[in-house]
Amino acid sequence: MSAHLSQQFQGFNLGVIEGFYGKPWSWQTRQAYSGFLAQQGYGAYIYGPKFDLKLREHWQQPWSDSERAHLQQLARCYQQAGLKFGIALSPYEVYQHWNSHTRQALVKKMSEINAIGADILCILFDDMRGDVPELAVNQAEICDFIAQHSQAKEIIMCPTYYSDDPVLERIFGAKPEGYLELLGDRLDNKFDVFWTGPSVWSVAYPPEHLQRVASQLGRKPVIWDNYPVNDMKNWHYLFLRAFKDRLASMPSLTRGHFVNPMNQAQLSKISLSTLPMVYQQGEQYDPEHALHQALTDLVPRELAAQLAQDVADFADRGFKLLSVEEVERLKARYGQFDHPMAQEVLGWLNKEYEFDANQVQQWTQD
């Protein structure tokens, strides 16, 4: 695919955001992804794995020299490939401790991020308590403060309530009345806003829904698409199907579309390669044909046939519903292939991606 869709549709970002929990990608994998994304027609990549606590709960701690060097190299790699490089900062519940100390810490963090050379800065308030006074006002003020110290050309913030999904209020507390409207009113127009859709894991994005959210926020949202991500409670699934029920008209309804991939970077390429087809083919787009095309382009024929045979079981039944005999048969089949995707299937079957919050410190990125 010859051109990034962000170039075809002025002001529209099509990208990938590494924003999942669990086993992270390696630095080598992230770098190699720059070529894949550029070839497929994407225009941006955002680094924001939940594994990196120095972007989240421990955001006040600086990266090590090695981590900083990796990030600088990653930024250069994407920029040389013609893609925007982004970093997602989640200053954990900073609005509950908004004082001179946290302001000074944010200035230091922004200096660190500026030195990496990010084109896009994300300020994420997701997965934090939201039932606190003046939530929208405080978050808008923090965004303004960060923006004053950022050299990024684009800034995208994520609200604490980033979907209509009631699960957010069950976990993070009652949403303040008029939260989205007040946030949109207080946020400067230079900020874009992430939105996952009608639910955290949206299956579709109806135009009327996107128009209503745009009215509440006073700007078109940027879609954070949680397909094909399979972290946390979904670790036992592999989502290899092509994108479906996505709007080719999204560039007229939103400011961008960022996809959160699976912990399995190589297998994620299958579904990721189909999303640009949605925009390029419009009404002619067929998910089944797109999946066939993706497998044909990315995978040797025999492995492609095996994956196509197992797509439904991997996505609908998942590891937990496979019998011991089925797991052993699958291990024997995929063990025949010397290919990174087959190795990821084997790792999944061996429970290497099983999510365990206590295991975070054991994972490495190298």
Score class of each variant (00 low, 15 high):
L55S: 06
L55N: 05
V94Y: 00
Q80G: 08
Q72H: 08
Q79T: 05
A44G: 12
W59A: 06
Q40V: 07
E93A: 09
T29N: 06
E93F: 01
P91S: 03
L83W: 08
P62S: 04
Y21M: 04
A32M: 13
R56C: 05
T29K: 12
R68I: 04
Q28T: 13
P62W: 05
S64H: 08
E18L: 06
L74C: 13
K84E: 11
E57P: 05
L89V: 10
P49V: 01
W59F: 15
I87M: 14
L74T: 06
D52L: 08
S26N: 03
W63D: 03
A75N: 04
Q60K: 15
W27Y: 11
W27V: 04
H58N: 14
R76L: 12
G22C: 11
N99V: 03
A88I: 01
N99R: 08
A69R: 15
A81R: 10
Q80H: 13
Y21A: 02
H70C: 13
N99G: 13
A38D: 00
G43T: 06
Y92K: 10
Q79W: 07
P91R: 03
L89Y: 09
G19R: 04
Q31L: 15
Q31G: 15
L83E: 03
G82H: 12
W59K: 11
I87Y: 09
A38G: 09
W63R: 10
S26H: 01
E67V: 04
Q80I: 02
R30N: 03
P49D: 02
F51A: 10
P91M: 02
P62G: 07
Q73W: 02
E93D: 06
Q73N: 14
G48W: 07
I87C: 11
Y33M: 15
P91N: 02
F51P: 05
Q72R: 14
Q31H: 14
S90L: 15
Y21L: 08
V94D: 00
P24Q: 03
E67I: 04
Q40W: 11
H97M: 11
G48M: 06
S34D: 03
P62Q: 02
L53A: 07
Q28Y: 08
L53T: 00
C77H: 13
G19M: 04
D52N: 07
R30W: 06
Y42V: 01
L74D: 06
Q40Y: 09
A32T: 11
Q80T: 05
